[in-house]
Computed example of a mutant assay.
Amino acid sequence: MTTPDLDLTSAPAARAASAPGVDRTVRTAGRVLVGVLFLWAGIDKVTGWQGALQEVVAGGFPLPSVMLALTVLLQVAGGAAIVAGRFLRAGCWALAGFILLATVPYHGFWHATGAARHAELIPFMEHVCIVGGLRVVSTLETRRA
């Protein structure tokens, strides 16, 4: 059934939602939120260095102090790049690769059963979603000088 007198595309809300300024604001807000996630994570590791170091050790990575320092550098630099809108593609791709490499050893839900499986599956899927968000952000225009 059609209703020819109902045109949702010309409604004021539809026009406002598709306005270039609104679109730009939404994209900028999304980009900044994604970047802040990584800035926060990197700063949190610095302020809680010993706890973060124990996590790296638990992951079985070689040279845990070096790995943690590289992780902090990547998260802070990548997050700052995303927030600033500079080196956007490189920052997003580097962080996406990092997440994929770190998620497998830390959230291997396929090795668990029952409640433990579910407890690992949720953060695994959250990280997959973050990678998806990074892919979307990587396609945004970078800031002009």
Score class of each variant (00 low, 15 high):
residue 75 Q to R: 08
residue 69 A to N: 01
residue 91 G to S: 01
residue 59 G to P: 11
residue 82 I to E: 12
residue 108 G to R: 15
residue 34 V to F: 04
residue 57 V to L: 03
residue 71 T to I: 01
residue 51 G to M: 07
residue 105 P to L: 08
residue 27 R to A: 14
residue 57 V to D: 05
residue 94 A to I: 06
residue 106 Y to G: 14
residue 82 I to Y: 12
residue 104 V to E: 07
residue 98 F to W: 06
residue 100 L to D: 07
residue 43 I to P: 09
residue 24 R to K: 14
residue 33 L to I: 10
residue 64 P to C: 01
residue 110 W to K: 12
residue 113 T to Q: 09
residue 86 R to G: 01
residue 47 T to S: 13
residue 94 A to P: 02
residue 69 A to W: 00
residue 33 L to A: 13
residue 112 A to W: 13
residue 49 W to L: 07
residue 48 G to H: 13
residue 98 F to Y: 02
residue 49 W to P: 06
residue 112 A to N: 14
residue 51 G to Y: 03
residue 23 D to E: 15
residue 87 F to E: 09
residue 85 G to R: 01
residue 83 V to F: 00
residue 82 I to A: 10
residue 76 V to Q: 01
residue 93 W to M: 12
residue 35 G to Q: 11
residue 110 W to T: 11
residue 89 R to V: 08
residue 48 G to S: 09
residue 36 V to R: 10
residue 87 F to T: 06
residue 100 L to Q: 01
residue 34 V to L: 13
residue 47 T to F: 15
residue 87 F to H: 13
residue 81 A to R: 12
residue 50 Q to R: 08
residue 94 A to Y: 01
residue 110 W to F: 13
residue 40 W to C: 05
residue 100 L to G: 10
residue 32 V to I: 15
residue 71 T to Q: 05
residue 27 R to E: 10
residue 78 G to I: 01
residue 60 G to M: 07
residue 35 G to N: 09
residue 66 V to D: 10
residue 81 A to C: 15
residue 97 G to H: 00
residue 35 G to S: 12
residue 102 A to G: 03
residue 105 P to V: 00
residue 48 G to C: 08
residue 107 H to N: 15
residue 63 L to W: 05
residue 59 G to I: 10
residue 73 L to A: 14
residue 31 R to I: 06
residue 38 F to C: 04
residue 102 A to C: 05
residue 74 L to A: 13
residue 29 A to G: 06
residue 74 L to R: 11
residue 104 V to S: 08
residue 46 V to M: 11
residue 85 G to V: 04
residue 43 I to E: 03
residue 86 R to E: 10
